[in-house]
Design a protein around this nucleic acid. Sequence first.
DNA 1: ATTTCCAATCGTAAAAGTACGATTGGAACT
DNA 2: AGTTCCAATCGTACTTTTACGATTGGAAAT
Lengths: 101, 101
Amino acid sequence: MNKSTENIVIIDNAEQLARFAKALGHPTRIAILKHLEKQSCCFTGDLVDIFPLAQSTISQHLKELKNAGLIQGEVNPPKIKYCINKENWKTAKGLFQNFFE
Amino acid sequence: MNKSTENIVIIDNAEQLARFAKALGHPTRIAILKHLEKQSCCFTGDLVDIFPLAQSTISQHLKELKNAGLIQGEVNPPKIKYCINKENWKTAKGLFQNFFE
DNA sequence: ATTTCCAATCGTAAAAGTACGATTGGAACT
DNA sequence: AGTTCCAATCGTACTTTTACGATTGGAAAT
């Protein structure tokens, strides 16, 4: 069982919404996601160039987005290509939409 | 200048979105907002009855929601009636909508 | 004036988040 | 084998969040 995505369905809506919201609760992570939306995909290194943050910090943010299920990484040696996780993205969209009516 | 609401317009979208998201990033706060949506308004005490949390903890969550601009409190002695801040709610809704396309 | 009631604030403790530099790991090249 | 490259992870420091009980403050009622 993949901790980051598989258990989304079994936990209650409020918790799932809070989970997504928490992942979105940092300007850098919003910016990363916006960038991924635009680019469709990108590498960690690209982000390190764009943001004035250490590589380890970017990596940490990516990890959180991945744990929340909002992105996924595809190994593309020697790089790792990050993309929006479209399925969960849709789920998140729906939850927020529903929440705000 | 009211710190919680007035400066929303002047800060960048990503930051504002992150701010709202952060406020939504806790199950209790999601639940409080859902309750406020349903009830239209409510008192702190009502929430203390509903949630298995200390009064001070609820108060703290309300404070954060207020600081984020999502709710507002109207004094209604001896109680305080909390409502959704409709204007900012709309702003938040728009930001999330736009973010998810 | 005192009491009562509601809610904010204070003080505190434990846990989580944010950021950094340094190190490690794995895959592809010399 | 050794080197190079990218990205994850480790170790660390600092800040913020979350939660609690206790205290305070303000308004209404006795």
